[in-house]
């Protein structure tokens, strides 16, 4: 989920060889549903001219649709470390056998 235009998403998805569904949220409607709009100062991405940006966040949702884990970046220069996310997935998703 990002504020990028669909075309940018398609381009980057190809560039990085990503398999995940990537969604465009230019108006931040989804971001606002999750309450993740950054209220601090931000530097908006150049060409897309989004009015604001989400706080970088990673969420895990279980089969019942409940949020079981969340990691918010308090600082845009930091992100959820992959090892932290993987550990959380193992803890909350019981994926060892899958």
């Amino acid at each position: 989920m990002s504020v990028d235009l669909p075309e940018v998403i398609a381009d980057r998805r190809h560039l990085h060889g990503l398999q995940a569904t990537m969604l465009s949220d230019q108006q931040l409607t989804v971001t606002d549903k999750f309450g993740l709009r950054n209220k601090g100062f931000h530097s908006a991405p150049g060409s897309e001219e989004a009015e604001a940006l989400p706080v970088p966040a990673t969420l895990l949702i279980d089969e019942s649709g409940k949020v079981v884990w969340i990691d918010l970046s308090a600082d845009y220069q930091r992100r959820s470390d992959p090892s932290v996310v993987l550990a959380a997935m193992e803890a909350h998703f019981d994926i060892a056998g899958h």
């Binding site: 990002s2 990028d4 998403i9 989004a50 970088p56 969420l59 949702i61 649709g65």
Partner: peptide
């Protein structure tokens, strides 16, 4: 996504 385990990431941008 209902009934699935889901990981959602919010990015600032690309």
């Amino acid at each position: 996504l209902n009934g699935h385990l889901v990981l959602i990431k919010f990015f600032r941008a690309h």
